[in-house]
Structure formats: C-alpha cells, structure tokens
Design a protein around this nucleic acid. Structure first.
Lengths: 197, 197
DNA sequence: GTCAAATATGGACAATTGTCCATATTGGAG
DNA sequence: CTCCAATATGGACAATTGTCCATATTTGAC
C-alpha cells in the first residue's frame, strides 16, 4: 500500500472512531484519548490530519451528512418517479437500519447539539437539513401547486421524522417500525387525500 | 431571613444556574466553574447541597420536568373538558413562550442527550415523557374507542411536537408559530375528521 | 543500498475538570 | 453577649483535557 493510501486510511479511521465515540460516550466525553483508543492510533495523529479537535468533529459531521445522502440516492435509484412510490421509499429509507440505527441516530443527536455552539459543525448539520427539505419540496411540488401546502407538508414530514428518530434514540428496544411508518403516512394522507396510506 | 431559608435559596440558585449553563454552554461545557460563576456562589456549595455534580444535574432535570407540568396545569385550569378545546390549549401551551423559549428547549435537548449515559438524569426526562403520553391518551380516549388509533395519535402528536421543538432550537429566529400549530392540527384532523382545525 | 521526506509515535505541557477539605463567617439558642 | 453548630468560602488535589513537539519509523526516489 502506498504512503498516501496509508495516510488516508488513518485519517478515515480517526473520523470513524470519532463518530463511534460520539455515539458511545456522547459529545461531552468523546475525548481525543477515547477517539485514538478506538482508532488504535497514536495521540499525534489528530494533529497530523486535522488542525484541532473541532476540525476532526467537523470532518465527522461532514461524513455523517454525506453518508446519509449517499445511501439515500442508492436506496432510491430504482424507484419510479411517481410521488407515492418515492415517498414510500424515502420513509422506508429513514426507517431502515441504514439510517435508523443507534450509532447513527445518537451521533446525529450529539452533533446537532454541538452545532449550537460550533458553527463549523453546524455548517454540515445545516446543509443536510436543507437538502432534505429540497427533496421533499420537489416531491410535494408534483402533487400540488399550492406553495403553502408544500411548505406545511415539508415542515410536518421532517419534524415528524425528527421526533420519531428521537423516540427511537430514547427507547430503541421498544421501537415499532410499522407504527412509525403508519403514522407518517396518516399525516401525509391528511394533507394529500389522493395518497394511499 | 432564617438560616434554613438562606440555604434553600442558595440550593435553588445552583439549580437555576445549572439550567442556564446547560442552555448557554451545552452539557459538555456546563462545568462547575461556570455554574458557580452564574450562581455567584463559591465552589464548595455544590458539595454542601449535592452529593456530586451528577446529583446537581439530576436536580436540574427534575425541576425542568416539574416546571413543565406546573405551567401545564396552570395553563389548562380554565379550559373546558371537550377534546377540541383541550387539544387546542395543549398545543398552544407547547408553542407558548412558557415552553418554547431558547433556554427551555436547549436545556431539555442537553438533558435528554445526557440521559442516554446517565440513568439518574434519564429518570426525570423519562417521567416527563410518560406523563405527557398519559395526558394525550386520555384526551384521545374520549374521541375514539379504537386503541390503535389512540396509540398512533399519541405517538404522532408527541413526535411531531418533539420535531417542532428541535426545529425551533436549530432556527429560533425563523420559527413560524402559526405554521407549527397549523401542521399539528392538520395531523390531528387527518386522524380525527371531527376536529376543526 | 542510501538518504531525505513523509508519516507515526508517545510523552510533555499548561489549562481545566470534579472532588474534597481546612478555614472563615454566620445564625440563633442559651 | 457567648458560643457551638450550620453554612459558606476558596484553595489544594489528582485526573484528564487538547495541543504541541522531539523522536522514531516508514516510504520511495535515486
């Protein structure tokens, strides 16, 4: 393996270890000591690859955000263009183990909390949120010309998903996939009676 | 002022300062140094009133939880018993500045994150959640006999409120009260067509 | 094989953390 | 007023934090 590849691999290990530490210990206790222990690398590596700890956290936030969309596009690539099918697929994706697993959800919760005091991290949590809004807005735009309805649908669907993720985080073992999907579609059907629930 | 009263007042200042520090700096940076600076008390006071820092955080979580319900009962005390009026009042309460203000929402977010690794804190965030479920379940129980519908309504309403609170936290200046209330009632009307909304 | 550059190691460092305690101040019963 | 217990102060303490650097190892061009 070339030197550049080895270096890149270690950088990646640091980012992955950071995400795991966030999920496992929370933002407050995701220290560099814990991160390098998970990554099985030495202390100096953080400084070699990143300006400081906050830059490492930002890189982790960036990756978490990008992973969501990479999986998203892959999940939807064979989905028909009609709104019903696409909504169904998106909701399934958001409730699939790709997205809805303890590590992902907890990490995201911690990063969002950190975003409040760290603009560098907020940049990445914010863009993920904005992208998701656009995706929903596009689909709902096919179903209605009423901009207020589109806005309500986007806002409601995202908020509802957000709340469901938090419920999952607080009580992963009790989580009821079917109920979650059913509730989201009950909301959507209330707004768009044409949809099948 | 008696000695006991002065002591109790200082204990209260510690708890209040803790909640403020959580909102202002986040759980990770809400150190004892910051807390006593906000409370304008000396370092040893934490140990006099609480076994350790975690007990102080737990007391803060307890108070935050209880304040929610104290305000809740006060807000609803003159509300008619019919479901429509009560739901309207509850949603208004959850969107009122009593509940939906930056300090409250940020504090709650931080405490919930901390609850994940601290059972002592989780105890209080958990009971608040459970109480809220009961309140909603009781109201929906008046509107339908279908237990599945009740469960979906409770789950959806709480998740949606939760998501809306997070949206507020992430973007308090852009928050649209009217839209939030409208979306919640669109959800409820989808489930219970009899509702006006 | 040689050697300079790139990469990695792990300890040093000041700053800050939560805990604890010796001391000072205050309150109120006698 | 006296004096002891209750309350409050602020510094000491080891542990841990994030940062930085001297040293070691590895890489790959020559």
């Amino acid at each position: 393996m070339t030197a550049a590849k080895k270096k890149e691999r270690n950088r990646q290990r640091l980012v992955d270890a950071t995400l795991q530490a966030l999920a496992q210990y929370g933002y407050a206790d995701a220290s560099i000591s814990k991160i390098i222990e998970i990554a099985d690398l030495s202390r100096g590596m953080v400084h070699l690859h990143f300006e400081n700890k906050n830059a490492l956290l930002a890189a982790a936030a960036k990756q978490a955000s990008e992973e969501y969309y990479a999986g998203f596009e892959d999940w939807l690539k064979d989905t028909p263009a009609d709104p019903q099918a696409r909504l169904d697929a998106i909701v399934d994706y958001d409730l699939s183990p790709n997205v809805l697993n303890e590590k992902n959800i907890c990490t995201w919760y911690e990063l969002r909390g950190a975003a409040r005091t760290s603009p560098t991290i907020g940049q990445f949590t914010g863009t993920r949120d904005a992208q998701l809004e656009n995706i929903y807005a596009e689909i709902f735009g096919v179903m209605t010309a009423d901009p207020d309805l589109i806005q309500d649908a986007v806002y409601g669907t995202i908020s509802l998903s957000e709340g469901i993720w938090i419920d999952f985080m607080l009580n992963p073992s009790d989580f009821d996939h079917a109920a979650a999907k059913r509730v989201i579609f009950k909301f959507l059907c209330g707004l768009f009676p044409k949809l099948q629930g």
